[in-house]
Write a protein that binds this DNA or RNA. Structure first.
Length: 302
RNA sequence: CGCGGGAUAGAGCAGCCCGGUAGCUCGUCAGGCUCAUAACCUGAAGGUCGUUGGUUCAAAUCCUUCUCCCGCAA
């Protein structure tokens, strides 16, 4: 099939890799390059770079609402639009533009976790599984009829990064499988009573609140590993926490109980034993490595 | 030119401000002790102190070039 692809982050790249082998990608739409990163350089999105490497035309409109942009998109005369974490809303005119409509790859088992950060929110909430939903897009966000789903388990060690990679992979395969069988699939409406929303990740929620329950905190740390990463401040320095486990011990929340041979800090109900950490200016490392040359003062309240 | 931290033994760090034979914790290897151990004791190996040039009697340390890594902000 002839396809116009719309996507932005890393998540979309494995999907493109797979898609390009089985279909014709006429054009790629992605977010415009913007000033970002160290040195404030102008950086192109991962999808943008992929498209350039494959010599496929790239468009980076700020919006698809204008007639002009829609006319450009229409000129490709594609059969189908594919969307994977694009970041722009598609107007009805765009959805109607393609004979086969627009199909979206979403990283959750819809109707659970519609929205911006389904991968992290699923882990944070303690879900036992996540998955990919392929859906026929509707105007309302992530509300379209589901064409296919595939689940994957979330276990005690699954990080946000792990799940991201796994789902991108599943998404690529499931999308291609779905496209191959598109004519035989019966779309299924989402059960509106089961809808939940995955709030966008916010920097302000990354500062660890040690009054939280240990178990919830550990889940959030896992969900936010490796990005955006939960952290705490100690003597004016930021420490990102990548891995931690619940630990039986009770005291004033936020107190360093043991900072010499391991790092145990109390929480609202219990305590967490931090096992992987990153200092400013350093790579993430196991706590044992850090403690060979760096020590936390016992009894310090964070 | 957005702000800032860092590169020292296999790992993690100190030393740098106030130049003077490179150190700590751990790991590794050898030996010892022990019923036994991730315990303890003794000993050993292992570093052109990221790169370039300079200052100096002398540079990990002061100045300079470049490379790489990372935190913040957006």
């Amino acid at each position: 099939m002839k396809i116009v692809f719309m996507g932005t982050p890393d998540f979309a790249v494995p999907i493109l890799d797979k898609l390009v082998k089985e279909h014709v990608i006429l054009a790629v739409y992605t977010r415009a390059p913007k000033v970002s990163g160290r040195g404030n350089r102008i950086n192109k999105t991962p999808v943008h770079l992929w498209a350039e490497a494959h010599q496929i035309p790239v468009h980076t409109p700020k919006s698809l609402k204008s007639e002009e942009e829609q006319a450009i998109m229409r000129s490709y005369q594609a059969d189908l639009g594919i969307v994977a974490a694009y970041g722009l809303l598609l107007p009805q005119a765009v959805l109607d533009m393609y004979p086969k409509g627009c199909i979206n790859v979403h990283a959750s088992l819809l109707p659970r976790w519609r929205g911006a950060a389904p991968i992290q929110r699923a882990i944070e909430a303690g879900d036992k599984q996540s998955g990919i939903s392929i859906m026929q897009m509707a105007l309302e966000l992530d509300a379209g009829d589901v064409l296919a789903q595939e689940a994957t388990p979330i276990n005690k060690n699954t990080t946000g990064g792990d799940l991201h990679d796994t789902l991108a992979d599943i998404g690529a395969n499931l999308l291609c499988h779905t496209l191959a069988n598109l004519d035989t699939i019966t779309p299924i409406k989402q059960d509106e009573s089961l809808v939940t929303y995955a709030e966008k990740l916010d920097k302000t929620e990354c500062l660890i609140d040690f009054k939280m329950a240990a178990e919830k905190l550990v889940a959030k740390i896992r969900a936010f590993n490796p990005y955006p990463a939960m952290y705490f401040m100690y003597k004016g320095e930021r420490f990102k926490v990548y891995e931690a486990e619940v630990c039986d011990m009770s005291d004033t929340p936020g107190k360093i109980i043991d900072g010499k041979k391991r790092l145990v800090i109390t929480t609202g109900d219990n305590a967490i034993n931090i096992t992987k950490i990153q200092r400013e200016g350093k790579q993430p490392m196991l706590i044992n490595d850090l403690l060979r040359g760096f020590q936390f003062d016992n009894g310090t309240l964070i």
